[in-house]
Simulated scan of single mutants.
Amino acid sequence: MILLISDLHLEEQRPDITRAFLRFLRERAVQAESLYILGDFFEVWIGDDGMSPFQHEIAVALRQLSETGTRIFLMHGNRDFLIGQAFCREAGCTLLNDPCVVELAGERVLLMHGDSLCTADQAYMRMRRLLRNPLSLFILRHLPLAKRQQLARKLRNESRTQTRMKAEAITDVTPAEVERVMAEHRVHTLIHGHTHRPAVHELTVNGQPVQRIVLGDWDTQGWALQIDEQGLEQAPFALEAEA
Rank of each mutant, 00 (worst) to 15 (best):
M1T: 14
I2G: 02
S6R: 00
E12F: 01
E12Y: 01
R14A: 11
R14H: 09
D16I: 04
F21S: 05
F24W: 15
L25T: 07
R26L: 10
R28F: 13
V30Q: 08
Q31S: 10
A32D: 13
F41K: 01
I46S: 03
G47N: 02
D48W: 04
D49T: 01
P53K: 03
E57L: 09
I58K: 03
A59T: 06
L62A: 05
Q64H: 07
L65V: 12
S66D: 06
S66T: 09
E67I: 03
R71Y: 06
H76D: 00
G77W: 00
G77A: 09
N78Q: 08
N78F: 00
R79I: 00
I83Y: 01
G84T: 03
A86Q: 08
F87K: 00
N97R: 13
D98I: 14
P99R: 14
E103G: 08
E103V: 14
A105W: 15
G106E: 11
V109F: 05
H113L: 08
S116N: 05
L117V: 07
T119W: 08
A123C: 03
M125C: 10
M127C: 05
R128T: 06
L130T: 04
L131D: 00
P134T: 01
L135E: 04
S136F: 05
L137R: 14
I139S: 00
L140N: 02
H142V: 05
H142N: 09
P144A: 01
K147F: 04
K147R: 08
R153K: 11
K154W: 06
E158M: 04
S159P: 01
A167I: 04
A167F: 08
A169D: 14
A169C: 10
I170R: 09
I170A: 09
D172P: 02
D172C: 05
V173M: 15
E177M: 15
E179W: 12
E179I: 07
R180G: 06
V187Y: 12
V187M: 13
H188T: 14
H192Y: 13
H194D: 03
T195N: 08
R197N: 14
R197H: 12
A199R: 15
A199N: 15
V205F: 11
N206F: 04
N206I: 05
G207Q: 06
G207Y: 12
Q208P: 05
Q208N: 12
V210G: 08
V210E: 07
I213G: 08
G216K: 12
G216F: 02
D219V: 03
D219M: 08
T220I: 09
Q221S: 10
Q221M: 12
A224P: 00
L225Q: 12
Q226W: 12
I227C: 14
Q230G: 14
Q234T: 11
A235V: 09
F237Q: 10
